[in-house]
Write a protein that binds this DNA or RNA. Structure first.
Lengths: 163, 163
DNA sequence: GCCCATTTGTTCGTATGTATA
DNA sequence: TTATACATACGAACAAATGGG
């Protein structure tokens, strides 16, 4: 029978991992909210937070305040795709190629095409950030999730203003 | 200046790491107890638990119930790499946000707006790659993708992958 | 052997801040 | 403005392991 010799947050972690690998929680889409997961598993929000927090540290999930917790990678990928600068640079190059390609078609394509292409770009950026988090872990530091704005202003300086 | 971590548990993590590297908490010996660390740092036991828990996940600390939390390894400190990674992660976060905003406006905006917005995204990607190349140089490795402008020229010829 | 203080580990509940829609 | 949702932080309780009386 199912061996359940451990804390509940570890069981919940295993449960979430299985739902991701089985396709119930696809990559790029959000998992149920924290209180909802707690109601489903019959545990408090503390256990859910602990499990999600661990999976975030593993690079499998990614939380976005006000939106939800999104699946970033499949557990098998997070295990085998131990990344380094070479892989990260390859992904940056792929992203650059994709953006440039999309730019070239900006004059002739339809707005509906942009939506699907931008979705692919957004996934690429997510993968790059996942590698970045892994890189932080290898250097023994913590990933600055929301407080990283050293070079952010330069990249986002155009095309956005809030009242 | 260098102390600019948002959450308190991250500051405590950094503080513990520094005490380990400085030799105040030697490898193989226990760190102060949870309530003692809380009193020293002026925070609650919740923050201490969170910080210790994260450092345990990173393989730096190891807890033994009834005895204490012992130093397992010294965190690999690379100050220059950390700062570069911080900048890089900030740029990626800004790019991610920018792409997401552009995705949301995909249905209503005009092609002319996409052209200018994509120019900004391409600029951000180039900045990220430049930072990545610099990071390679400081770690003593060669950038595997060759020239920084190869990606743009290579994709300029004929961009036709999907669809 | 037994009791008890210390310490970690887990869980519960709740409050506040911030981001998003 | 309101509502939802994540992130952080506070306090409290219990179990299990350890070690000293």
């Amino acid at each position: 029978m199912t061996k359940e010799a451990g804390p509940e947050y570890q069981k919940l972690m295993e449960d979430i991992r299985e739902r991701i690998t089985s396709g119930e929680y696809p990559v790029g889409r959000p998992i149920p909210s924290t209180p909802r997961l707690g109601a489903m598993a019959g545990v408090s929000v503390t256990v859910v937070r602990r499990a999600v927090q661990q999976l975030q540290a593993d690079g499998i999930l990614e939380g976005h305040p006000g939106k939800g917790v999104f699946v970033k990678a499949v557990p098998a990928q997070a295990e085998s795709e131990r990344l380094d600068l070479r892989t990260l640079s390859g992904q940056v190059a792929a992203l650059q190629r994709e953006v440039h390609e999309l730019t070239g078609r900006a004059a002739t394509a339809q707005p509906a095409d942009f939506a699907s292409d931008l979705a692919g770009i957004r996934e690429a950026v997510g993968r790059i950030e996942a590698n970045l988090i892994d890189l932080y872990g290898k250097t023994g530091h913590d990933y600055p999730q929301g407080s990283a704005r050293d070079g952010a202003e330069a990249a986002a300086g155009r095309g956005r203003r809030k009242r």
